[in-house]
């Protein structure tokens, strides 16, 4: 078990999410950065989709009530054990009574903390992911608070591991995000010459796990009102004022704005590590290019880590 001494800005229990209820209007939820999530679980040899803590912007302070192994991946928030800095992306043995804390956010936006055996809250609708909007899953359906004691699954034997540096979250001055054309791409007045592909956008302040509102040059379009229709993770909507919105893990399952583009699967983790004010650009690729990027990433993960699929 662990006890939350300080919760940090926004700390949630998440796993891979729940897909199968989308036809009833239930968002997927789950971790925003699936790559860092997989790496965190890899470090403690969790192989069954165990839940981790998704830590946003500022880290929590956590007391370990038993000896165990942990892993920290994703954003670098200067993690420390008993105030001594520790290495990320490596298996760490913690003792009963140790306190994990975090300092300055150095890069990225979301860190992932895994524990040997996973955080073992009850599954709701086949997942431990927290969906705060409807108070479902995780720990009482909410972000963690002071005094919460979170159960941990059975501790297995673990060999100490390191993630190769090539897989670490890296800071970019402007992140390049690849997209393929969306189903309503044709609403862009200039098509492929639209400023959507040439403008540098910034992540707006009112961005969250549901979606990122982008700020930059307004896009010329002749969008008509649409009937509500399905949404997928990474879909980019264009509301009438012409500022795109990227829909993410907690997005509604349906919406009525034109979907001008979709972020490819393999680049979604990049978005998860952007914070309000960060810059990004979109680059168009084909469906085949998008999918082969993901295949290559799978190969890279499997090769470097000997990971089995997902």
């Amino acid at each position: 078990m662990i006890e939350i001494i300080k919760p940090g800005f926004y700390t949630l229990i998440q796993d891979i999410g729940r897909n199968e209820y989308q036809e009833y209007g239930m968002p997927v939820s789950g971790v925003m950065d699936r790559d860092s999530y997989r790496l965190a679980n890899y470090l403690v040899e969790n192989t069954s989709g165990e839940a981790v803590l998704e830590i946003t912007m500022t880290g929590p302070e956590i007391l370990f009530l038993e000896e165990t192994e942990i892993g920290i991946t994703g954003a670098d928030m200067s993690p420390m054990i008993n105030e001594v800095p520790l290495e990320m992306y490596t298996t760490i043995l913690v003792s009963k009574g140790d306190v994990l804390s975090f300092g300055k956010l150095k890069n990225g936006f979301r860190s992932y903390l895994s524990v040997n055996g996973g955080f073992e809250v009850d599954k709701k609708m086949n997942s431990r992911s927290t969906y705060t909007y409807a108070s479902v899953g995780g720990f009482y359906g909410r972000a963690l608070k002071i005094g919460d004691v979170i159960p941990v699954g059975a501790r297995g034997s673990v060999q100490l591991k390191k993630v190769p540096e090539i897989l670490f979250v890296k800071p970019f001055s402007t992140t390049s995000v690849r997209v393929i054309k969306g189903p309503e791409f044709e609403v862009l007045k200039l098509g492929e010459d639209s400023c959507f592909f040439s403008t540098e956008y910034r992540i707006g302040n009112n961005s969250n796990r549901m979606g990122y509102r982008l700020k930059g040059q307004s896009i010329a379009h002749d969008a008509k009102e649409m009937l509500s229709t399905g949404i997928v993770n990474g879909a980019i909507q264009l509301p009438s004022e012409g500022m795109p919105i990227v829909l993410l893990a907690d997005a509604q399952t349906t919406g009525g704005y034109p979907r001008i583009a979709n972020v490819i699967q393999s680049d979604l983790p990049l978005l998860a590590q952007l914070k309000p004010g960060d810059k990004l650009r979109f680059r168009k690729v084909t469906l085949e290019e998008g999918q082969s990027n993901y295949f290559n990433k799978e190969k890279q993960f499997n090769g470097l880590l000997g990971l089995s699929k997902k």
């Binding site: 989308q22 036809e23 009937l227 399905g230 295949f295």
Partner: peptide
């Protein structure tokens, strides 16, 4: 097939392209 989202006039079907191709 990962999910099916029917709406007024559309159906969105999510798939895992590691298991089934477009």
């Amino acid at each position: 097939v990962v999910a099916v989202i029917p709406a007024y006039t559309t159906i969105t079907i999510q798939y895992d392209f590691l298991q089934i191709s477009y």
